[in-house]
Simulated scan of single mutants.
Amino acid sequence: MSWCPSHDTPLAGPEDAAKAFDRWSVLWQPWGKSQVSMYFGPLVPGLDGADEWDSKVLRVDADFEVGRAAVTWLPDGSYGVELGPTDGPITAGFGEPEEIPAERARVSVEKAREAIIEYVTTGDKPVCLRWEAS
C-alpha cells in the first residue's frame, strides 16, 4: 500500500510523511502565506488502473504563521484537540486560501506532524490527539 499526501508523489513511510509536512512548512502559497491543506491516506489500485483513496484519510490544515492546525479524521468527521480554542480562524489551503474555524484549529503544528507520522505508521486514527465529534 502506498501513502500519499494530497496530490504529491507516494510516500515510502512515516519519515517521508514528516519530510512532506516539513517541506510545506517553509513554502509560501500564492497568496503570500505559509499555510497548507494536506490529505494523507493509503492509495489502492482503482478499477481503471489509477490509484484511488482508501476510506481512511487524515486531513491536516496548517497555518504555520500562527502555529496552529486543524486535524480531521475524514471517516467520521471528528477533529483532533490538543489546545484550547483560539481567538479566530486559521487560514490554510492548497491553491486557494480556505478559512478554518477556530473551534477546529485546536492542534499545534508540531502535534499535527506527530499525528501524521503516527497515522502513516499505524494506518489508524492517531491516538496522540483527543478527538471530538463534529
Rank of each mutant, 00 (worst) to 15 (best):
F64G: 07
V71T: 00
V44K: 11
A70N: 15
R23L: 13
K56V: 03
G32T: 05
A62G: 00
Q35W: 09
A50Q: 10
D22N: 13
L58C: 07
V60F: 03
L83G: 02
P75L: 03
P75K: 00
D22W: 01
A69F: 03
A17S: 14
E65T: 05
G32M: 13
S6D: 11
S78F: 02
T72V: 08
R68Q: 01
K56E: 09
L83H: 07
A18S: 09
W73P: 07
D76Q: 06
S55Y: 10
Y79M: 04
A12Q: 15
L43G: 03
D61G: 02
R68T: 04
S6T: 13
V44L: 12
R23N: 14
G41K: 01
W31L: 13
G77F: 01
K56P: 07
E52Y: 02
G80C: 04
L27V: 07
G80W: 02
P45S: 03
A70W: 06
P42I: 04
K33Y: 15
Q29E: 14
W31G: 10
Q29R: 14
F64E: 13
A69C: 01
F40H: 08
W73N: 14
S25C: 12
F40C: 11
S55N: 05
F64R: 06
M38Q: 15
W24D: 05
K56F: 12
M38L: 14
H7N: 08
K56T: 06
D8Q: 08
S6H: 07
P45F: 00
K56G: 11
A70G: 10
A50D: 14
S37P: 12
M38C: 04
D63F: 00
